[in-house]
Simulated assay, not measured.
Amino acid sequence: MAIEIRRALSRAELSSFIKFPYHLYKNHPYWVPPLLIEQKDLVDVKRNPFYKHSEAEFYLAYKDGQVVGRIAAILNHNHNKFHNENIGFFGFFDCVDDKDVAFKLFETVENWARRKGLDEIRGPVNPSTNDSCGILIDGFDKSPCIMMPYNYEYYPKLCESYGFEKARDLYSYYISQEMLTPKVMQRLEHGVELVLKRRNATIRPVDLKNFDEEVKKVKEIYNNAWSKNWGFVPLTDDEINHIAKGLKQIVIPEIALFAEVDGKPIGFSLSVPDINQALKGLNGRLLPFGIFKLMRNMKKITMIRVLIMGLIHEYRLSGIDAAFYYYTIKNGIAKGYSEAELGWVLEDNEPMKRVAENIGSVPYKKYRIYTKKLG
């Protein structure tokens, strides 16, 4: 049957766009259905602050009257301005195992990018590198952590067959309480004490009672600490407030940490419970009874994800990042968590990879962001 690509414009079409993965991965043992309300927010061009500075179009692929794929074409103006580039992105890519369908979707984004006069397409980003991004290429036998993607093993082949090449690989590291021997923890504690004393630095938990002020400090640190990272795009005030509002409900102060020198914030580390462990079986819905199951499941979470960790430029390579890891591990264990995912980490971020490996964590998942030049 012929493959038809339609732009998702109506409420019903956008609903099909959002819900397609729930059908594609139905009963999959490792895929975790994200909350539908959060997926709607990611494509809401009227309310999500990302679309105040950028634009996107959403497309569905049909075959024999059935939805068999989806993709978004994205123009992130803030990215292009910050990096002095002229590129577009694709995101929200999901597809049946059919090369013809995938090629039609990729071709749609490529043609859209050409009409915009762009030089390259890169992705997936959903809708930016500040959200989930990349295609899983290693680690298919494990469920994704919060705000990380999951896909079938045939996805990389579909991308590469079309002509996409690797732009960057992203790593996630794993560590468990069992992997942390007393000797490792003693060595880490001793090293952290020396570093903090030498730098006159302290580590403190986030103050939820002054949440708005804390968020302002996070923004200043974030837009400084990550500014030289590949793919980084500064967050606007609206964006960081939007993200903070969504995460506030699951923030645990003991694993959301500031580093300060003489009372001045110079670094931030945010770890959150892996709520994906609690979302299994809800099929993305909290109502009418999902909320009660979620509350029960939250008590069974064993994993945390180290979501972001960074220091302003003058304190990079100072060793304070090891202090973040130490207190996250120590406080996380005290709160009842027994394992953690650290990441993602760029493949060429050697300092962060070295710190992760020095505490005993191991790379256990790999994601890839693809690129294609438009000659």
Rank of each mutant, 00 (worst) to 15 (best):
Y337E: 03
E357D: 09
I333E: 09
D348V: 12
I329Y: 02
E341R: 06
Y337I: 08
K353D: 09
P351R: 08
V355L: 10
M352N: 05
N331H: 06
N349E: 09
L346E: 08
G336M: 05
E339D: 10
E357N: 09
P351S: 10
N331F: 01
E350C: 08
E357T: 12
I359M: 03
Y337F: 15
Y326M: 07
K335P: 03
N349Y: 10
A356V: 09
A334L: 09
E357P: 06
A334T: 08
G336I: 05
N358F: 10
P351K: 11
V345C: 02
K335L: 15
A334M: 11
D348G: 09
V355M: 09
V355G: 02
E347V: 12
L342W: 07
L346F: 14
G336D: 04
G336L: 05
Y325T: 01
G343E: 03
P351D: 09
N358L: 13
E339M: 12
N331D: 03
E357Y: 06
Y337G: 04
W344I: 02
L346D: 09
S338R: 15
R354Q: 13
W344V: 02
D348N: 15
N349K: 10
N349H: 11
A340Q: 02
K335H: 11
L342M: 10
N358Q: 14
N358E: 14
K330P: 02
I333W: 05
N331A: 02
G332Q: 08
G343P: 03
W344D: 00
E341H: 09
E357A: 13
G332K: 08
A356T: 09
E339A: 13
I359N: 01
M352Y: 06
N331L: 02
D348W: 14
Y337T: 06
V355C: 10
S338N: 14
I333G: 08
R354F: 12
Y325M: 13
E357L: 11
W344E: 00
E350F: 14
I329A: 01
T328N: 12
Y326H: 12
Y327Q: 01
T328R: 07
R354D: 13
